[in-house]
Amino acid sequence: MRLVYLLLLTLLFPTAVFAQPYRTVSYDASGRKVITYTCDPNETPEWFKENYLKEEKAKEPIISETKAEVVSEQKRTPPKEGSIPAKIETVDANGKEIFTENYRIGYAGQCTWYARGRFHEVNGVELPTIGYAKDWLMAPLVSDKVDVCLDVNVVPEHSIAVYAPKADSRLKGHVVFVEYVERDKDGNPVNVYYTDANGKQDTEKNKYTKGCDGQVIQESFQEFRENRHLKLVGYVVKKD
């Protein structure tokens, strides 16, 4: 539009807009006449500069909240291996150490006790008592606040990973809480950071081990999928 204003004003009122505008005639590749007007900007009236020759400010890019969240997600860092992100204990009014509210149900030190408490702590969903660890994929039958994911390659963060016996049905299985997942450029899991109790690194089995239960363990996805006796069969996830 500015060029239209400029051309019209120059044609209709040449001396009112510019002093002695210069007219150049040329031809384009198709043989069409092209007329170009040039002028000395020092002789252009201030009112015209103010209204028609203002420089447009470059528009700042608009970043949506969703995009900002994605960037923030990409910048997340994994929890420190060996740290304990779970708040398992607190101190009462008498200075005695007691379990926090999330960890007051179940047999302290068992994997199901810890996974249940950590899931509640992070997701705000309290799971009922389900049974042995290997049975935890039945969770949606007793709670309408969770679903299960049977694709073991997904590895949802903040889910409970469920392990079942490979061969010996007498084994009770195992559950762990998935804290963080490192993925390749295609979204495939590479390294998994999880916490648990009564697991492979627990120094005292079948009891709460302060400073050990709830420690962050990092494993490659291949290590995470199975061990000698157990295999990963799915995940308990918070329902959207």
Rank of each mutant, 00 (worst) to 15 (best):
R118F: 09
R118G: 11
F119M: 06
F119Y: 05
H120P: 00
H120F: 15
E121M: 14
E121S: 08
E121Y: 13
E121N: 01
V122L: 02
N123I: 14
N123G: 03
G124M: 08
G124F: 11
V125R: 03
V125E: 01
V125W: 02
E126Y: 04
E126R: 09
L127S: 04
P128K: 11
P128C: 12
T129C: 05
T129L: 14
I130C: 06
I130S: 00
G131P: 09
G131C: 07
Y132F: 10
Y132E: 07
A133T: 14
A133G: 04
A133H: 01
K134E: 00
D135F: 12
D135R: 00
W136D: 03
M138T: 12
M138R: 12
A139D: 02
A139R: 02
P140W: 12
P140D: 10
L141Y: 14
V142A: 11
V142W: 08
S143P: 01
D144L: 02
D144G: 07
D144Q: 04
D144K: 13
K145E: 13
K145G: 06
K145T: 02
D147W: 13
D147S: 15
V148C: 02
V148R: 03
V148P: 03
V148N: 05
C149G: 09
C149Q: 15
L150R: 14
L150H: 07
L150V: 09
V154I: 13
V154W: 15
P156D: 13
E157C: 03
S159L: 09
S159Q: 09
I160S: 07
I160C: 01
A161L: 12
A161E: 10
V162E: 03
V162I: 08
V162A: 09
Y163H: 11
Y163K: 09
Y163E: 08
A164S: 04
P165K: 10
P165V: 04
A167L: 12
A167V: 09
A167G: 00
D168Y: 12
D168W: 12
S169H: 05
S169P: 05
S169L: 14
R170K: 10
R170C: 02
L171P: 06
L171M: 15
G173Y: 05
H174Q: 13
H174K: 06
H174Y: 02
H174D: 07
H174C: 01
H174L: 04
V175A: 09
V176L: 11
V176R: 11
F177W: 04
